[in-house]
Write a protein that binds this DNA or RNA. Sequence first.
DNA 1: CACCATTAGATTGTGCGCAAGATAAATTTT
DNA 2: AAAATTTATCTTGCGCACAATCTAATGGTG
Lengths: 149, 149
Amino acid sequence: MTEKSALALDNQLCFALYSASHAFGRAYRQFLDPLGLTYPQYVVLLVLWEKDDITVKDIGEKLFLDSGTLTPLLKRLEAGGLIRRIRDREDERQVRIRLTDSGRALKEKAQDIPKTIGCILDLPSDEVSALRRQLGDLRGKLQAAVSKP
Amino acid sequence: MTEKSALALDNQLCFALYSASHAFGRAYRQFLDPLGLTYPQYVVLLVLWEKDDITVKDIGEKLFLDSGTLTPLLKRLEAGGLIRRIRDREDERQVRIRLTDSGRALKEKAQDIPKTIGCILDLPSDEVSALRRQLGDLRGKLQAAVSKP
DNA sequence: CACCATTAGATTGTGCGCAAGATAAATTTT
DNA sequence: AAAATTTATCTTGCGCACAATCTAATGGTG
């Protein structure tokens, strides 16, 4: 009787994650639209606001995204005047990504987004940390399972 | 000193969710590829395996997806011979989705996927339930915040 | 009944996410 | 040094997500 239906939608952790993730995306949209950003573009900027002048590969490793996703996204950020893509002189295989003044300035306007989202979630900060850690563990286990076999 | 950087990637619950969700998708891929399914197609089938002969709208409400996403996805499932899309005689606006024999039969082959994923995650079932509930709460709060203002 | 709003789906356009394959530069081997 | 291998990025193609717009059918209202 513990079995019930393993295939029931409501029993699926993955679906809970999948649908919550999309809900997050829709919630962020209302704050990012005015900045002209999508959520993936925003997280790329989060990375650059922490450390500027890094390679596409560096960004990909932090965000778990490959160049097939990042190259066109970065081109759009460049077209929007927020970053520049510069071939590395030392190693011509690499492309270094640098914020423009305009890209750096956008950080100010994004400053309040996390707090606003935090208010919506209305969770104690230790619960948020716990969740973040658990999700990180999940991601780690899933990645390990995919890369090996 | 509690503030640190609200914009730091590692402090973002949303990013933890976003990256874990993608990791899930990549993990499922190796089990769904042999069945010729994508993850979104799989969750549509989960819904139909629980209750057959429902409308596109019904599916959309369970999965939090709109017709812009579902219509082409369902057409692909129909092209693959797993479902049929039938205009409702009573209300010609609706399209009812029904599993074919082949679509029903696929349930057998999908039966072991949740357990396999469960082994990868290797979490006590009460922790999984707790996570699922917390993620459901998050989704609810985010949805409420998006629809109102 | 005629009019108007609502509803269910379909369509169009944009932007991911990722697999697979291509290109070119660096590195290692021979 | 030439050849083979590895590495970083780009490109192509497919399938979501979703906003916005459209069409057609239904359900009121006066």
